[in-house]
Amino acid sequence: MGAGPAGIEAAAALAASGCGVVVFEKNERPLSNITDKACLFPNFESADTVAAQLLAKLSHPNISLQCGHDVSCITSAGTDPAAGWRVDDESFDAVLLATGYTTFNAKRKEELGYGIYPGVHTSLELEQMIRNKEIRNSISNLPKRIVFLQCVGSRDEKTGNHYCSKLCCVTAVKQAIEVKKLLPSVEAYVFYMDLRMWGQHYEELYRTAQQEYGVKFVRGRISEAGGTFDGRVQIKAEDTLLGLPLRMTSDLLVLMVGMESSDGTRRLSTLCDICGDYGFAQSLDPHLRDNLTPRQGLFVAGACKRPMTLTDSVVDGRSAAFAILSAADNK
């Protein structure tokens, strides 16, 4: 279920081992969470190239891809737990939930002015602008200043999302660099509570942003944003390292929206009784049985479990395929 990186990688690995695989995808095209990006962190590889490589894996004769198919019903095929599963009208030995994530709806943080002031955008919208090589707010022309705000809809009691979305920190650094590449004279600021550069080469990317692109980092959470008469955005924060209030005006304010469980993840994991915290699907345990669920023949992979990068999702998809094959061997 789900033709994202985890689902595709698992399907490819299973097909290569001789299994027949059906991939259900609710959208008209697979990989929508990759094809809406310009380049990927940390190496600026083109998202389209990676998407094409992943898609090519689906052209195995054992794989049937059904796009535009939003699965409505998953049930066990019989009372015997080993009887397999029925998905809509078809029967399967095993089912893999790889229904992924969605991004936080920034309108829920009203004080940040998204949908109210023209200069406030989400990181996804900025990604589109970077893809189109056209960065501007809807009123002024070329921006002179751009401000990124971390942790929008993550690590926030007020939205109910206590968790960290894991990849918005490095995404902001990546986007700030991309903006500077397109418009070298832009001043770029990143407002953060903590910068989490946990992956390989992420810390180096942060350093590159400072060293080669002059991106400035301010430790403080923006408490509110307002519009100015000329269509820009005024923000308020505390420069916590100085202990002084800070105000500034920017042409663009980019909200680094976090990851939430997708509608499909919520609905299908609830249907299968494996819905865990924040509507993410829950595996048996996070260490050694992270692709298994309490239900025989039902497996989980990728960002339907928790915020995950593309790399992690691919690895997790492959590991789910292995779990499915081992379960079949033990049957």
Partner: peptide, 23 residues
Amino acid sequence: CIGCGACSATCSAASMTDFNIRQ
């Protein structure tokens, strides 16, 4: 508290005095 400074940024008193609730 993680010391993010949102309280002190939004504080009504801080716009008129040197009051810093976080500190």
